[in-house]
């Protein structure tokens, strides 16, 4: 009915968070610009990892909105959600948002956390295997 609103809300929050983190990372990179590039392997910035979650949430929400339009659950006129037109349907919609919607958000976030965990482990392994920097 409107379960897609929950991951969409999460997507808005994570997009704003990613922008803030990215600007902070860019600032810290500018501060470090005085040091020369050593050519060593660098970690993937957290803002880029957060972008993976954004892409999953926005992409998934976009296709689910299409599905809701297909089934006539989202309409282009007020109140936009057919379930919001009467109290009984609204209660059912809210229940679906609390169960299915929250479930969707949790599953996508859990998969993203697993991706970040695996990537971090691979980064640590790669950094360990990297030969020590040569001193001039």
């Amino acid at each position: 009915m409107a379960c897609v609103l929950v991951p969409m809300t999460e997507a808005i929050i994570t997009t704003i968070t990613a922008r803030v983190i990215k600007s902070k990372e860019e600032k810290s990179v500018q501060d470090l610009n005085s040091t020369e590039d050593t050519g060593s392997m660098e970690k993937i910035p957290f803002s880029r990892k957060l972008k993976w979650l954004n892409n999953m949430l926005w992409g998934g929400s976009g296709l689910l909105v299409f599905e809701h339009i297909w089934h006539g659950e989202i309409v282009p006129w007020f109140p936009f959600l057919t379930a919001a037109s009467n109290a009984a349907d609204t209660a059912e919609m809210l229940n679906e948002m609390a169960t299915v919607g929250v479930g969707m958000s949790l599953l996508v976030t859990a998969v993203w956390l697993a991706m970040v965990g695996m990537t971090s482990a691979m980064e640590k392994k790669a950094l360990k295997e990297q030969p020590p920097e040569e001193t001039a």
């Binding site: 999953m56 992409g59 599953l107 996508v108 998969v111």
Partner: peptide, 11 residues
């Protein structure tokens, strides 16, 4: 990521 996101939600 678009397809995986949608797949997880439909799951």
């Amino acid at each position: 990521l678009i397809y995986w996101g949608a797949s997880l939600m439909w799951l």
